[in-house]
Amino acid sequence: MSKPDPLLSGAAGRCPNCGEGHLFEGFLKVSPLCEACGFDLAAADSGDGPAVFVILIAGLIVAFGALFTMVAFRTPVWLTLLIWLPMTLVIVLVLLRPMKGLMLAAQFKNKASQSRHG
């Protein structure tokens, strides 16, 4: 059996090593070990990368959507905010976990690791 693509596994919230175990314990907390293959996930650290990408993607979608709504439909500012502020929250929550999994999987695939002392 061949190994799964680590990037697809990470985006799906699965272990980048085996593709079966859970990558996360909670919403964004990384599991210390994969329950399927025993791979050590504790050293994985995505830093602020996922948040930066999510901010850029969500900002682009929301800014374009809000401007389009205001220009095309001539909506008042309060209605535009009523529509797009909750959409911002939804977009961020939908994208954050897969983006973090993708970043962790990219570290695994490229054999990147944090600098080690000693």
Rank of each mutant, 00 (worst) to 15 (best):
G47P: 01
L23Y: 12
K29G: 03
T75E: 15
G38A: 07
L60V: 14
S46F: 02
F39L: 07
A44W: 03
A42S: 15
A63D: 12
G19S: 04
F39Y: 14
E20P: 08
V52M: 13
A51Y: 00
E25L: 14
E25K: 15
N17M: 09
N17I: 11
L56S: 01
K29A: 13
H22E: 14
C18G: 06
C37V: 06
L56A: 05
F53T: 04
L56N: 01
E35S: 15
A72T: 07
E20D: 08
P50F: 00
V54C: 12
F68C: 05
D40V: 05
F68P: 01
C18H: 06
V52I: 15
L67E: 09
E20F: 12
F68S: 07
F53Y: 13
G21I: 01
E25Y: 08
F64N: 08
R74P: 03
M70D: 15
I61T: 02
F68T: 09
A36R: 15
L23T: 12
A42H: 11
F24S: 04
D40W: 06
P50E: 02
S46N: 07
L67P: 02
G65A: 08
G21T: 09
A58N: 01
C34R: 03
G59R: 10
T69H: 06
D40E: 11
G26A: 12
S31E: 14
L67Q: 05
G19H: 11
G47K: 04
I57L: 11
P50V: 00
L28F: 04
K29C: 09
G26F: 07
A63E: 15
A42V: 14
K29T: 14
F39T: 08
L56T: 03
S31P: 05
V54T: 13
F64R: 10
A66R: 06
A58Q: 01
S31K: 14
F27I: 12
G49L: 00
L41A: 10
F64P: 10
E25N: 14
L41S: 08
V30P: 01
F27N: 09
P50I: 00
E35P: 13
I55F: 12
T75F: 14
G21N: 03
V71F: 12
N17L: 05
A44Y: 13
L41N: 10
G47W: 07
H22W: 08
F68W: 15
G19L: 10
V52P: 00
L60M: 12
E20V: 14
C18A: 08
A58S: 10
E20Y: 07
L60S: 08
D40I: 03
A36G: 10
F27K: 07
A58L: 00
G65F: 02
F64D: 06
G47L: 01
F53D: 02
D40A: 11
G21F: 07
A44I: 04
C34A: 10
I55L: 08
A63S: 09
F68Q: 04
F24E: 11
M70Y: 08
V52G: 03
R74M: 04
G65T: 03
T69R: 09
I55Q: 03
I57E: 04
G59K: 10
A43E: 06
H22G: 04
T69I: 03
G49S: 01
C37M: 10
L60N: 12
F39N: 04
G21H: 06
L28A: 13
G26Q: 02
C15E: 03
V71P: 09
C34W: 00
L56P: 00
A51V: 05
P50A: 04
V30N: 05
T69Q: 06
L41E: 11
